[in-house]
Design a protein around this nucleic acid. Structure first.
Length: 577
RNA sequence: GGGCGCGUGGCCUAGCCAGGAUAGGGCGCUGGCCUUCUAAGCCAGUGGUCGCGGGUUCGAAUCCCGCCGCGUCCGCCA
């Protein structure tokens, strides 16, 4: 099955190829089509400037000749030359009819593609379970979960994983604190939630560790015991972090993020796979050792810096975080065709180290990594110790509360309290996720409340509102089940149908290029186009019964695509707000 | 010092990887639109040397080189 836009593109490219293959075979093999800058210049265009050189003719002449030679087609309605460009116009009537028909037939599947056999593992979030998530790390679950949803929709068999760092110093500090600190000496928690409770032990223990080398030694001992596979200690640490992790899960669930699996780091010590990694790496010609600690010199792999050595064992032979990460990756790569990691930009070097090690170990496939830049506050970096921190839980509460005020202001006298709260939750969470995912991962974000809680313009409530408007119309009169749309002539109707037809392509590019921010960008455009249609074209009071029916169908299509798109972002589409 | 990323109107952002037709949006600000399907909306106006300087090209926000600013990393930490 192909979507209308694909059919049109194939037809245009095919006709051009047919024509150009006589002139320059290689050129004809990779024809590049562009989207014209405005609708009056068609739906696809072809630039003739490169041909001008080959043919030694002005591009204007070439475009005119091509335009004459390419006639109407199944999808091509007309072809025009404009300067050095050939502009192709799609058969609008066919596009509207086919798009609307497909959307309503496929319903929640519209925009998705046939299922692929490749398995995908997406690892994201993987935060240290020693306290609540803060906004600095909130990008990770939101980007990660969006990718999970987009990959699934595109047709992959996806498993999401949270890698639990249960051997690290962070959890060891927490475990030590829990064992040695009298809770009555701690300040009250920022809220009644396990992760907020536990982080106090972590913070105090951290302080004590910095001041007292003996404490540090005890904590290091915990780490060593865990690392060497001591079940009793691992169990003690697990007991300590489990509740913090539950708290994190609870927060994530509230923003519609859930995982298929939680993979403990200790697993790769327990099953011995990390030691196999060590043995294999030692055999490599790039390996060396110093005082009994083993490393790989990365200079040969183009890594530069003060110290290019990547240590994969300590001098006592124990392994390091990155070493275990290699074992984890081998495990993932053996089960999946595509492995994706969502990581903070601070992990760039570590990811590179892992990648090089995987290459040395002869792995055929490598993980793809989506890096995101840090969220900072206007005052500077997030710092739990300096009290400069905003917890995700607080951001969620604030977003929902703001949404509640807004919905109460508008609908307070129509809707009951329970419904107001439900809508506030949907709108608040939506705004939060949207405002984070709409920015390309690699850009820095300076956290500002007014931006994080933006409810107007390019925001989730804007998109949700368009959806609610569509639902509101359809509540009053539902769209006919079966109808062929053929009378949509108004420019606002046409442009709306055109935007609807592009959705599958947005899904495709977002997935294949790991660009989750394309989804909100598209939804904003769709909602905005719908609002213009809403202004220009009365639906319930349309000029004729026929046009009303067709507009209802169009509105229903918008409803479906907005809902499908929002669900890719883990955002609910309210029927009223 | 070196590596990697980012730098687009007062603020935020798309476009950059696969170079093309007047650089799209949003927020803000100014003015207009609720006896018609929810005004979380719509319309008009305002505002840009695409960090700076070179180069490649018929054509550069986009590719190449140099510089500047910000972020991040350069632990036998995670």
């Amino acid at each position: 099955m192909k979507y209308p836009v694909e059919e049109f593109e194939d037809e245009v490219a095919g006709k051009l190829k047919e024509l150009l293959v006589k002139i320059d075979r290689e050129f004809a093999e990779n024809i590049k089509l562009e989207i014209p800058p405005s609708p009056d210049k068609g739906d696809l265009s072809f630039a003739c400037f490169p041909l001008a050189k080959i043919l030694k003719k002005p591009p204007q002449e070439i475009s005119a000749e091509i335009a004459r030679a390419v006639g109407k087609g199944e999808w091509i309605d007309r072809v025009e030359a404009c300067g050095g460009y050939v502009n192709f116009f799609i058969n609008v009537e066919k596009l509207c009819a086919e798009t609307v028909r497909l959307i309503r037939e496929m319903d929640e599947k519209y925009g998705s593609f046939e299922s692929r056999k490749e398995k995908v593992i997406i690892e994201h979030t993987s935060a240290n379970p020693n306290g609540p998530l803060h906004v600095g790390r909130a990008r990770n679950p939101i980007i990660g979960d969006t990718l999970v949803r987009v990959y699934r929709f595109y047709g992959y068999n996806v498993r999401s994983q949270f890698y639990v760092d249960d051997l690290g110093k962070q959890v060891a500090i927490l475990a030590w604190g829990l064992k040695n600190i009298d809770p009555s000496t701690l300040p009250p928690p920022s809220r009644e939630k396990a992760d907020h409770h536990l982080v106090r032990f972590y913070q105090r223990a951290y302080q004590m560790m910095e001041e007292d080398p003996d404490v540090e030694e005890e904590i290091n001992e915990i780490t060593r015991l865990c690392e060497s596979g001591d079940e009793k200690t691992i169990e003690m640490v697990r007991e300590a972090y489990k509740k913090a992790l539950d708290g994190i899960k609870e927060s994530l669930k509230r923003i519609n993020v859930e995982f298929d699996e939680f993979v403990e780091e200790s697993r790769f010590v327990r099953d011995g796979s990390v030691y196999k990694v060590v043995e294999e790496l030692k055999k490599s010609k790039y390996a060396g050792s110093e005082d009994g600690a083993w490393y790989i010199d990365l200079k040969e792999f183009g890594i530069q810096g003060r110290d290019t050595r990547f240590f994969f064992t300590r001098k006592d032979g124990t392994t390091l975080y990155a070493t275990r990460d290699i074992a984890y990756h081998i495990w993932k790569l053996n089960q999946a065709d595509i492995v994706i990691n969502v990581l903070g930009e601070d992990h760039k070097l570590e990811a590179k180290q892992v990648e090089i090690a995987l290459r040395i170990l002869g792995m055929k496939r490598l993980p793809k990594v989506v890096f995101y830049s840090f969220v900072t506050l206007p005052e500077g970096k997030l710092s739990t110790r300096r009290g400069r921190v905003i917890y995700l839980d607080d951001l969620i509460d604030e977003a929902v509360e703001r949404a509640y005020q807004e919905v109460k202001k508008r609908r307070g006298d129509e809707l009951d309290e329970k419904r107001l709260r439900e809508i506030a939750e949907i709108v608040g969470i939506g705004a939060l996720r949207y405002n984070i995912v709409k920015i390309q991962p690699e850009k820095d974000i300076v956290f500002k409340w007014e931006e994080a809680l933006n409810f107007e313009g390019d925001s989730a409530p804007f998109v949700q509102y368009a959806h609610a408007r569509a639902c509101s119309i359809l509540r009053k009169e539902s769209a006919p089940e079966k109808i062929t749309v053929r009378n949509l002539k108004h420019p606002s109707e046409i442009s709306l149908a055109k935007v609807l037809s592009r959705f599958p392509n947005v899904v495709k590019i977002s997935c294949t290029q790991n660009r989750p921010h394309l989804i909100p960008s598209y939804l904003f455009e769709l909602a905005s186009t719908f609002n213009q249609f809403y202004r220009d074209c009365p639906v319930l009071k349309a000029e004729s019964e026929e046009i009303k029916k067709e507009r209802l169908t169009l509105v229903d299509s918008v409803r479906i695509v907005l809902r499908n798109g929002l669900s890719l972002l883990g955002i609910e589409a309210p029927e009223e707000m």
